[in-house]
Amino acid sequence: MLDRTEDLLKIENLSKNFSISAGLFARPFQLRALQDINFTVKRGETLGIVGESGCGKSTLGRCILQLLAPDEGRVLWLGQDITKLPAEEMRQKRRDLQIIFQDPLASLNPRMTVGEIIADPLRTLMPEVNAKERRERVLRTMEAVGLLPEMINRYPHEFSGGQAQRIGIARALISEPKLIVCDEPVSALDVSIQAQILNLLSDLKDEFGLTLIFISHNLSVVRHVSDRILVLYLGRIVELADGDDLYDDPKHPYTRALLTAVPIPDPKRARQRTIEGLVGEIPSPINQPSGCTFRTRCRYAEERCAQVRPPLEVIAGGRNVACIRWQELDLKPGA
């Protein structure tokens, strides 16, 4: 059985900035995409990451996989820091760490057949596997994700979005990874196909004992698949909690705002609830507000919110929240 208490992945003080050029002679802007991210992922769990567009979800996923080099902080994979590994050692680690992308068609090389695409990580990561065995593994993986074997010689453009996403999932699975980062894997799909892929991911997770990091802007989807949910705002963690706790008793005003805004496919409930829209717009990640970065849109903001940056506190139930007023506020739905 899986040891569900072991920390598979641990992120420590991770930060990532992008330099945005401001013209030939000006100093480039620093866009703070991620700041001081800390969390752990336990073996066998699904950690959901939600937040609005541009809050740094994809950047976080890419930093975990070392597709982007973080500026600061460590990414501990089974206790070992992988941010500064030599290229060859990192390549070995990639067997265990895979990713599924949002745009199913864009993530498949249009000039390769399905078989070649799925086999690609095997070819680079395990050159010792010979062509025949590789083909067998490709077929086995195709079966596992619900692709017919006769599709093996076809090209991506002959597939619909849902099938293309299955191809992407097969490619991520073939090296038998331990952790898969799913970056908005269903956002581009139709509702009925989205449900098929979500079920597939949950089946594969059970079958192969996978650990998933599931990134999405859709809180309903994240809540459906995740054990724990991490809420990002402007590149910082504002809350991290068990799915049920987060939904029943959000501790951060931003989480509550998200919860009241999520569309509910239930007309009576939808009519009853009052939407607490957020005031204003997301500030630019280049010019972030002082103190609590959420304060410009927070209906509970006070003067001191502008002075202190709320730390990410560990509170009861192993939850994390970054709000200086979390103890005084009752943010339960309906409250």
């Binding site: 098929q196 079920n199 309903s220 809540r223 459906h224 509910i264």
Partner: peptide, 15 residues
């Protein structure tokens, strides 16, 4: 097929 934030079903029943 539509996930519902208030109800966490184990599986969806897709078409």
């Amino acid at each position: 097929s539509t996930p519902h934030v208030a109800k966490r079903a184990k599986r969806l029943d897709p078409i």
